[in-house]
């Protein structure tokens, strides 16, 4: 990255409790520019964090800054945030464009400017041909899109998307993913929560993982995986004679386990993967084996998330 990282959202020792129930517990985090994925199990505090970021909730303790300013009671900042909520929040009898237009009006736009903004937001989300129809006739995917259009209509600098993919079909997911990427390229910062980790991972490697109201990891997925020293790394090797390779590997002290998982594949367990990556090509060449795949088996967001939530739970 050549540009200077600017904190888009800054949480400083933020806690939020509802009566006796804790929503967020002493969270300090910085969310930078670009797309950031917010992941965590149900009830982990994702919605609380989003609510705080939008100034909908007031932190019980701590300070939260968005785009450098406090958000609570600060319309100037709030007008730069676009939000797509998870649930259905519709006036079902309105048409798509009336709905978006109404919300544009709420954010202070009027006249031709408003009409153009509505049209543009609807076009971006691919809803142009359905904008004249009442929302009650929309499919789930169309409802998601119109909700996103509504979040985009006032050209916000920060987009907060709570489960934007729920209910959309694969084609829709693909298109929405492209939309978010292109927005990010244009300089819009995006905070996106999703239960479907593959999708978040396809959008960004910057993650904020929370569980039980605490941040359990933040930053790049691979960096996070690298810091988990208590977990041996797993490397999958697809090779023509796994048994021969296994015998040889078992003799190395950097390797803590070898398992033959298929007639043409084995899994290596090691605490020091870098050394294995360094030595593996040589070993395979010496033995005259034909390799068809070498891959880290547990560096995906899903694997990392699974480790972390089990540890914290």
């Amino acid at each position: 990255m050549c540009e200077i990282e600017l904190a888009v959202i800054e949480l400083d020792k933020v806690s939020k409790w509802y009566g006796e129930v804790i929503g967020l517990n002493n969270v300090t985090a910085t969310i930078g520019a670009g797309i950031t994925g917010l992941v965590g199990p149900n009830g982990a505090g994702k919605s609380t964090l989003m609510g705080l970021t939008m100034g909908q909730l007031h932190p019980s303790k701590g300070v939260i800054r968005v785009l450098g300013q406090k958000v609570w009671n600060a319309p100037a900042v709030l007008s730069q945030i676009g939000y797509c909520p998870e649930g259905d929040v519709f006036w079902l009898n309105l048409t798509g464009s009336q709905f978006v237009g109404f919300l544009a009006k709420q954010s202070g736009m009027s006249g031709r400017k408003r009409r153009e903004a509505v049209q543009k937001a609807i076009e971006l989300t691919g809803m142009t041909s359905y904008a004249g129809r009442a929302i009650k006739g929309y499919s789930k995917g169309m409802r998601q899109r119109i909700k996103i259009a509504q979040a985009l209509v006032h050209s916000p600098r920060l987009l907060i998307l709570d489960e934007p993919f729920t209910g959309t079909d694969p084609v829709g997911r693909h298109e929405l993913g492209n939309l978010f990427r292109s927005l990010a390229e244009q300089g819009v910062d995006v905070l996106i929560s999703s239960h479907v980790l593959h999708e978040v991972e396809a959008l960004t490697s910057q993650m904020l993982m929370i569980d039980h109201g605490r941040i359990i990891a933040q930053g790049d997925v691979h960096t996070v995986r690298g810091t988990m020293h208590d977990r041996p790394h797993a490397i999958r090797v697809r090779v023509d004679q796994p048994r021969r390779l296994a015998i040889y590997l078992a003799g190395l002290d950097i390797i803590t386990g070898v398992k033959i998982t298929a007639p043409d594949a084995l899994m290596i367990e090691t605490p020091s993967p870098e050394q294995v990556y360094q030595q593996l090509p040589g070993l395979i060449l010496e033995k005259g084996l034909t390799v068809s795949e070498i891959a880290a088996a547990d560096e995906s967001l899903e694997a990392v998330f699974d480790y972390l939530t089990r540890r914290s739970g």
């Binding site: 870098e274 990556y277 360094q278 593996l280 090509p281 390799v291 068809s292 795949e293 070498i294 891959a295 880290a296």
Partner: peptide
């Protein structure tokens, strides 16, 4: 160098 992955 190090070979971190080789994926068909």
């Amino acid at each position: 160098g190090k070979l971190h992955g080789l994926h068909p």
